[in-house]
Each structure stands twice: as C-alpha cells, then as structure tokens.
Design a protein around this nucleic acid. Structure first.
Lengths: 167, 167
DNA sequence: CCTCACCTATCAACCGATAGATAGGCCTTG
DNA sequence: CAAGGCCTATCTATCGGTTGATAGGTGAGG
C-alpha cells in the first residue's frame, strides 16, 4: 500500500527534524509505523534513499504551500515567514532541510543533493518574487537561523523576533 | 597529560561541527588522536561528558575572541560577524553550537544545556553592546542561518551575503 | 609504592542490510 | 470457471560491523 510508505516517510520526517540524519534508525521508524524493519527496506532500499525521498517530499510541499500563500495575496517574503512559522508552531521542530544541512559534511550525496535543492529552489523563488540575490539569502538565513534558535532555546518567540521586520 | 585531553576535544569538535552529536564516535576520535577508545573514556567518562566539555570550551573561546575584537575597537555586531566568519573561513565548518542545536530534541541534557548557554550568553553580550533583545535575536539568527546556508551550499558567499548590512 | 595515563579484551546493544518464507490478490489461460 | 503462476507486502531470522561502556592489566615517574 502507498499508505505504509507514506507512514514511513511521516515517521522518518519527524525523527530527522528532531535528530538529523544520523539520529534515526530503521528499527525506530518501523516500530512507530507498526511494521518490521525489513518492511521499511522493502519500500526504501537504503537509509540514503529514505532520507532523500523525505527531503524531496518536504521541499515539494513547502514550495507548494508558499505558492498558495502568494496566490492568496500575501507578499513573497511574508509567505515564507508563514511557512516556517507554521512548521515551528505545528510541530515544534526544525526545518527538515535545516536539520539535515547542519550536518551537511556527513550526508550521503543523494541526501545532500536534496537538501541543497530545497535552498536553491527556495532562493530562486524569492528572487522571482522580486528580491535581490543578496536579500534572498538574508531572508532565508534569518528564517533558518530563527528556527534554529527557537528550537535550541525551546522558545518560539526567538523565531518571531528573528523574522520580525523581514516583510 | 592535558595535551591528550585537548587533542581529544579538538578532534571531537571537528567531528561534531561536521556531523553533529550523533555523527561521531569514541573510536573515530581515538584513532584521529592516536590512542585507543578506552583512553578517551579515561579523560571523558561518557559521550555526553565529552560533547558538553567541547561545547563549554567552544563558548568560552568564542566569547573571548569577541571581547578581544570589541576591545580592539570594532563594534559589537561587527565583532560577532568576524567571529563567525573566521570559524567559517578557517575551518569550512558549522558553528559547533549550531551543529549541536539543530538536533536539540535528541541531545542529552548536559549537552543541550551547554548549547543553550552559548546562545544565552551570546545574546546577553549583544544586548550589553546596546542592541535590543529583538535586534540581538535577529543578528544571531542571521549569523547562524548564514553559516548553515554556507555549509549546505558549500559556498561561503552565502554567509557573507547573509551577514552583509548587519553592522 | 602508588598514581597517572594508557593499554587489551570484552560486553550487550544496536546498526543497515539481506535472504528466504508466507499469505493474499490479480491475471492469464486451458 | 478453475487452476496455475506471478506480484505485492509483509514476516522471521540472521549477517557482519559498530557503538558506548567497563574490567582489569602494564609500565613509567615521582
């Protein structure tokens, strides 16, 4: 079933956002989903595969939700702020690609590639929205850094302060 | 000797900045230093101990170098920018406490506590330098986020752009 | 002689990954 | 329609390797 594969990705996403690529295991995810670890391998051949798939899905969803915010009338920067804020408030976790990227020098190449894609596409969308390359980097850094601070300090207000005045 | 303990912390710091708390092992560090893993345990009882010690030393050094920059006449914000820039240019790695903090929800409590201390003391120093609480968070987020972007994208210019215009 | 700094050897637990069996559904063909 | 074969999704069992940690031994130097 597609159901199980989705449930595996859901569990993996949660764990990666909490603990990074090196912080989750097949057995852990399997238990959360209610299957055996061999069944996780059936859907995703390797750990690299699984993490890369999760990152790709995350990027697609994130960009889509930003597009929707923009379509419903809010500015590009504000759309990004809302995307990150929701990720923080709903789940109380890091941005998935931030959590992966913080250990970028130890990532398998497919996973690194997907994490990079998140930021490349994100920055491209910001520049399409009228920002300069440099300004786009400033916005992305502020959001990702704000997310990190909010997580470390266990205080969402850190993100709100960091994002204030961006848009 | 204090020599070996320092060498262990040096190696651990490098690995943590590349791969996070879950991405290094006693044997790896031992090999790099040229001793056996049991000897690492002699100097640092547990992994939690070692990582917490490394984080504490990192924070002390970082704050000290910022103080020196300020004493030599540059502004508080500029001093922080230089601190992060040096960490990035010299080593090509993440901020240690950023690398730890990105997986904050999976950190042993002593390690989390030391990572938090880095940010708490850093923010305090920024506000002592005349910044508002909110502005201090914006600066710290921009620097930490810029660091993350530069690492993921393997492009130091991402940091420079993110930090531009802060001071 | 005793403490420090290291060693060897080993432990149970966990890791990612694979092999092989099984049960159920669907498709094809006589 | 029935029977045989294949595909899917799961399981059990196991592999070699790594992990953090511990026990206990060894040699040097004060």
């Amino acid at each position: 079933m597609k159901d199980t594969a989705d449930a595996i990705m859901d569990a993996a996403e949660r764990r990666i956002r909490d603990a990074g690529y090196n912080g989750f295991s097949f057995r852990e995810i399997a238990e959360e989903v209610g299957v055996k670890s061999a069944s996780v391998h059936y859907h995703f051949a390797t750990k690299e595969d699984l993490a890369a798939s999760v990152a790709r899905r995350y990027t697609e969803r994130f960009l889509l939700s930003v597009d929707e915010e923009v379509a419903s009338g809010c500015g590009t920067v504000e759309a990004w702020v809302r995307g990150f804020r929701r990720a923080l408030n709903d789940d109380g976790k890091m941005c998935l690609c931030g959590a992966l990227g913080a250990a970028s020098h130890s990532l398998p190449k497919e996973v690194l590639s997907e994490a990079q894609q998140f930021f490349r596409l994100g920055l491209a969308k910001l520049t399409e929205g009228g920002l300069s390359q440099s300004r786009a980097l400033q916005v992305m850094a502020a959001l990702e850094g704000g997310m990190l601070l909010a997580n470390v300090l266990a205080n969402p207000d850190a993100f709100h302060a960091a994002a204030a005045g961006l848009s």
